[in-house]
């Protein structure tokens, strides 16, 4: 057969079939693997799915038992409510008492008691005006010696942060009146 005949050219085209059949065989192999593994994958997936459902069931049961335990504890706490009422009452009253008593300012009666405590012999209170944050006092003293003694006692006392003298007068009867603002 001459080489340039049509039959010859067709024969050279068929040569490609060799490579095609090779690729096809590989393709068939992959196809078979996919087919086989598909069922395996499905099986594994189903097992996993059943496992997940089992875990879900386990957790749901655990939640149920915890809820039950919680209800039981609530019931026990309810039976102990009289104790809780007592405790809450005490707590409430002590916190209120702390609020009432817990002031930062020195109570006026304490300053008064401190000043009265250092009054010299023969001294009398002429006037007192005491409230929180303000304390003014006028003291009548029988002689100048007691005035000095009173001032010394005031200065020696560490209870007062600030003492201002408002006035010092001498009466016809010979009594000294000292007016002070104390803080």
């Amino acid at each position: 057969m001459p080489l340039n005949s049509p039959t010859h050219s067709r024969t050279s085209g068929i040569n490609l079939a060799g490579s095609l059949s090779h690729e096809f065989a590989r393709f068939r192999k992959v196809e078979a693997i996919i087919k086989r593994t598909s069922f395996v994958v499905l099986g594994v997936y189903l097992v996993v799915l059943v496992g997940v459902a089992g875990i879900n069931f386990f957790f749901l049961r655990q939640e149920g038992s915890l809820r039950k335990a919680g209800e039981s504890l609530r019931g026990q706490i309810n039976t102990l409510s009289p104790v809780e009422i007592l405790l809450q009452t005490v707590k409430n009253r002590t916190s209120l008492a702390a609020n009432i008593l817990g002031t930062t300012q020195t109570p006026p009666e304490r300053v008064l008691a401190q000043v009265v405590g250092i009054l010299p012999l023969g001294a009398t209170i002429a006037e007192v005006d005491a409230q929180e944050g303000k304390f003014s006092i006028s003291v009548s003293l029988p002689n100048s010696g007691s005035v000095v003694e009173f001032f010394k006692s005031l200065s020696a006392s560490s209870q007062f942060s600030n003492i201002e003298m408002d006035g010092l007068s001498l009466s016809n009867q010979g009594f000294y009146t000292v007016s002070l603002n104390i803080r």
Binding site: P108, E109, T124
Partner: peptide, 8 residues
Amino acid sequence: ISKVRMLG
């Protein structure tokens, strides 16, 4: 005691 006023 909130206020003390005294007069001799």
